[in-house]
Nucleic acid binder design. Structure first.
Lengths: 199, 199
DNA sequence: TTGTTTGTTCTCCTGTTGTTCTCTATTCTA
DNA sequence: TAGAATAGAGAACAACAGGAGAACAAACAA
């Protein structure tokens, strides 16, 4: 990938930081005005360089249209935060990866995805490697499957049962036993809303 | 899907943001007025483009003030064909419903979705009510989970094992046994590629 | 029926827009 | 210092996008 010149980088930064540009592809004239140029020809060279670099998508195969629409940024999806397992805190994923989910899973409330590690919920049909879509929430109802932070240390995915004076986390694995905690040991981080598995 | 021109985008935005339009479909003349056009012919070209793009529903034939309403429901997704279970043919769903899936599940090859009915694959973590994403294919490898049509009658979701002279369909349920057929009894209709579950 | 509304098709026109050139000024590099 | 990038200005051009308006046929209202 070709290296950008100073001005090209500058122009690219302006483009991607300008919300208007991201929505409605601007015309060259509009861009010139925005950039303080007075010649479309000059602009064209820069745009061309950005296209070569793969940072800008030329609009339409035909001519007259408009252009720009930078590419990489138009991702939709929910953030993929890391892996979750019984016994370990969430391994944070470095770059904020994104995972695409059904539109209907990307609801109004903030959600994120985790990849499941381990078999502690296997009897619920949640397998190692599956992706779970979590709705951020600090409270949950009995019977919900939740992401729970235990003793400020480890995070785990379990079915929740709250009783006066104690909070029980039920694994769904015949070989594992429910874990009982004092309410203040458990912090709920989210509720399971969806599951996605690839074969 | 064709790219929209600037004006087309603009018109589409106006349409969808106008509450009146969503309720009572406007006439071309009304739209022209709303958009500041003085020629129905001009409008028609734009509308046509939106129809091509799948953003507006034609409502062909009818004349009387009908049109537009692309609706928020212009979902993209894969067709939801019906329910699948062991022992019954697929119940066809009348209207071609659609279900939205992660982009990554809507691959190049034709796919469709089925809702799982029954517990015959429960040990594989495929539960009653789950949605499975199926890639249309007439052939599959051993070990694949496939949609199989048995004796031209019933359709079922099972793990496939093909041996010389016999085809075995393995359920994933401790209380069920593998079923053995002659190869010509079984017709493969698709391969399981993804699973989606809502809580 | 008859007349009106409304979608559709057609031709024609114009301004905008991307593109290509040439030319000049400035900065970097060997 | 010369040569090459880099950056811009401005002219000229072809190709549409976008619009106007006429004409027409199907759908509707009376």
């Amino acid at each position: 990938m070709m290296r950008l010149t100073r001005r090209q980088q500058e122009i690219y930064d302006i483009l991607r930081s300008d919300a208007d540009m991201m929505q409605r592809p601007p015309t060259y004239d509009e861009l010139c005005q925005r950039l303080g140029l007075s010649s479309r020809g000059s602009l064209h060279k820069h745009i061309q360089a950005l296209v070569m670099a793969g940072l800008v998508e030329p609009m339409a195969g035909k001519q007259r249209g408009i252009r720009l629409v930078s590419a990489a940024q138009q991702e939709q999806g929910i953030p993929m935060l890391g892996r979750i397992a019984a016994g370990r805190p969430i391994e944070a994923v470095e770059q904020t990866e994104k995972i695409s989910v059904p539109d209907s899973m990307a609801a109004s409330k903030p959600r994120y995805a985790l990849q499941v590690s381990g078999d502690s919920m296997i009897d619920e049909g949640i397998f190692d490697g599956d992706y779970v879509v979590i709705e951020q929430s600090a409270a949950a109802d009995n019977g919900d499957i939740v992401v729970a932070l235990i003793d400020q240390q480890e995070t785990t995915l379990k079915r929740l049962e709250q009783q006066p004076g104690k909070t029980i986390l039920h694994p769904a694995n015949a070989s594992m036993s429910p874990m009982i905690y004092k309410p203040d040991q458990i912090q709920i981080q989210g509720i399971l809303r969806g599951l996605i598995r690839y074969y």
